[in-house]
């Protein structure tokens, strides 16, 4: 019996008459990494959005399980973290306020030390009280990663996680992904090298 995992069954997606991909099948278990690769416009971000439940597939289904029990869409939402170019943080709040908002909105217990630790790990502690509107795209990307792992998700979706990051930022994020995998998190990423290094599963879209 799997502690937790997800299963893609015959996923297909087309926009109008343009077929992006079809017959995508995959089963992922605790601690595994799936990388999705392909050319621009091949549907990597679309597949990630389908897996997170933010977009409906044209055909097929995505099932999430915890102890063989299928999760409802709301339960799925509570157990996933997403970093994607199409998901932003709030410009008019500070980095700290963004994370505190996400803690409260998820109904979690507020722990200031935990937020500070996370900001420290991502190299944002000195900017915690700065408005996100003045952040560079790299700093914003780091904050988005903090927002995605804030609630220790069981499934972490990373759409181009290293985009806009400098070498230090890439190293930090790489370490965070490693730590998430060691914790048992299922990581699904597009355009990421870590999965290849680990030799886990891979989907190539054409």
């Amino acid at each position: 019996m799997l502690p937790y995992g997800l299963e893609l069954i015959n996923i297909a997606k087309h926009f109008d008459r343009r077929l992006l991909f079809k017959k995508i099948n995959c089963t992922l278990e605790r601690g595994q990494i799936l990388t999705i690769s392909g050319a621009n416009g091949s549907g990597k971000s679309t597949l990630l959005r389908i897996m997170t439940g933010l977009l409906k597939p044209s055909y097929g289904a995505v099932h999430y399980y915890i102890h063989s029990r299928k999760l409802t869409p709301d339960q799925v939402s509570m157990n996933i973290g997403i970093v994607a170019p199409s998901i932003n943080v709030y410009d008019e709040l500070t980095a700290f306020e963004n994370l505190r908002f996400l803690i409260n909105v998820r109904g979690m217990e507020y722990d200031e030390q935990r937020v500070n630790d996370l900001l420290q790990r991502l190299g944002l502690i000195d900017f915690k009280n700065e408005m996100v509107s003045i952040f560079s795209t790299g700093m914003r990307q780091r904050l988005k990663i903090a927002a995605a792992i804030l609630h220790d998700p069981l499934f972490l979706f990373l759409d181009e996680p290293f985009s806009n990051l400098d070498s230090e930022g890439m190293q930090i994020v790489d370490n965070i992904i490693e730590a998430q995998c060691e914790r048992g998190c299922v990581v699904i990423a597009s355009n990421m090298k870590t999965g290849e290094k680990k030799g886990d599963m891979r989907i190539e879209l054409s």
Partner: peptide
């Protein structure tokens, strides 16, 4: 501002 999905996955 592309924060809709952040909200969508965070609560009911």
């Amino acid at each position: 501002s592309f924060t809709e999905d952040q909200l969508r996955i965070s609560t009911s």
